[in-house]
Design a protein around this nucleic acid. Structure first.
Lengths: 262, 262
DNA sequence: ATGCACATTTTTATCGACAAAACCTGTTTT
DNA sequence: AAAACAGGTTTTGTCGATAAAAATGTGCAT
């Protein structure tokens, strides 16, 4: 009964969640963002309870919280689901980030002090170092890489004085990560990724608002650009598929038939 | 479906909540926004259960959801509180709205069609009509006025294609309402309020992005301007207070000593 | 097959009970 | 007097049980 739960909880033992619902929140978010829980799949309470070894109440609490952040869909008496991925949504959050986060970084440049600059340099360095350490490993630690990546992007806008805006950027960042992680399959060199971020860092540290804004703007666009064009290519390459509807991402996969557990 | 894009929950009057936690969410939000539950007061589960006649689990679910939206504060093993009001927070959300909502209305102007314009006119008309109907009443229906006010402000940016941004505006709007309702005490004529909104409507309907942006920008500023200057005046009128720090509004009000209810 | 009523199974949402943690409130100790 | 302690009380967070609703299956008639 507890074997599965121990397994799951052990993986995140670093984060000292005092509360079961906090643990549930973290684990659930991780699994949704990483794709371990497939987009558009149903989140049955019984399954989640078993998966994380946590009771129904804290589980629902975590689900409710994630629903408020848009990482879970909730419909009134029909439970919860993982929000589907779609080209429309990807474009929505991409453009929203371009609108908001670019302004945020400009404000950060305006208000940032030396500590702000230091944290940018530090977090970039940590990203770079992880890359060098992992270049030999065949199974890179995606989790740690993601942590450092987020730290770097937070650092860029950390000096923006508008807390609400920064929190919103955080939310959009998390949403975008769901899509960005899909790019892993399209063979991306970490060298290219690092160069991208170095350029971005330099643009911000130059304290030229226009330049930094443009750099961040195009950086944010990368995920959508690559992913949507890849999808278009795949759609075009598939001879059987009818591509009359354009490069629209599909919202529903085969949905593996649910087996009874007897 | 109640994710972040819960544009369906606005109909507070016809609130046929299928679920207890939905009812709890609505009631709790109303009481926090209206100030019926005092800022910085503790939200004890037992009290809330009795107040709304709802069990602990759906109550906590609603609290968790509101916490994710910033309308409730949660600390790990010490329960929930109503977030305090402060000049700093008011300025934060005011400037954030100026940054985001102004861009949203510009995008709405860019994309808006005839239906968009119609809904703006309609919602303004409904606001105006309620005013005329209520000018005689000694106890105006604040709840209904708020509903129509929100509908009007939503209408302005409804044509903005970025759903995430609109949802964020919604959140900030709700936050700002907590402060705006404080202005009721500072004797505000509804005539002035209506004129303000008519000007705003006309600026938006002129489809001049710059003009509309400026109108919305200053409209958003009103609450903070009036409230902070009133607070400064009150501070100045108090002989004991030392105002050496300049006309900066203080972040902490007298905080009426919390008496035990015993 | 298609649709429809109805029975069965699964899932959701809710309540009450319980352990652990926080919180008083005097009392003792330094 | 301030800090430390021990007690009892309140409050939080969690679980399991349960009713209501949805989903699924089945037989039957079109």
């Amino acid at each position: 009964m507890t074997t599965l739960s121990e397994h799951a909880l052990e993986a995140v033992s670093t984060g000292a969640d005092v509360t079961a619902s906090e643990a549930a929140l973290r684990l659930l978010r991780r699994d949704i963002v990483s794709g371990a829980l497939a987009p558009d799949s149903k989140l049955k309470l019984r399954v989640l309870k078993e998966r994380y070894g946590i009771g129904g109440s804290p589980m629902r609490e975590a689900l409710a919280q994630l629903a408020a952040q848009g990482l879970v869909q909730q419909s009134s008496q029909k439970g919860f689901r993982v929000p589907p991925l779609s080209a429309a949504h990807l474009l929505d959050i991409t453009r929203s980030r371009q609108l908001v986060e670019v302004e945020a970084v400009k404000l950060a440049i305006e208000h940032g002090d030396a500590d702000w600059e230091d944290e940018i340099v530090t977090s970039y360095h940590l990203l770079e170092r992880l890359y060098h350490r992992l270049r030999g490993a065949e199974r890179p630690d995606t989790q740690e890489f993601e942590t450092r990546h987020q730290r770097f992007h937070r650092a860029l806008i950390a000096a923006c004085p508008l807390t609400s805006v920064k929190d919103f950027c955080d939310q959009l960042y998390t949403q975008a990560t769901r899509y960005r992680l899909l790019l892993r399959r399209y063979g991306f060199t970490r060298e290219v990724v690092l160069a991208e971020h170095r350029i971005l860092m330099q643009a911000v540290l130059s304290r030229n608002k226009t330049k930094a804004g443009k750099a961040l703007n195009s950086h944010i666009a990368i995920t959508a650009d690559v992913l949507l064009s890849e999808l278009a290519d795949r759609a075009l390459r598939r001879p059987a598929a009818k591509t009359s509807k354009g490069p629209r991402a599909r919202t529903k996969q085969p949905s593996k038939s649910r087996r009874k557990t007897k």
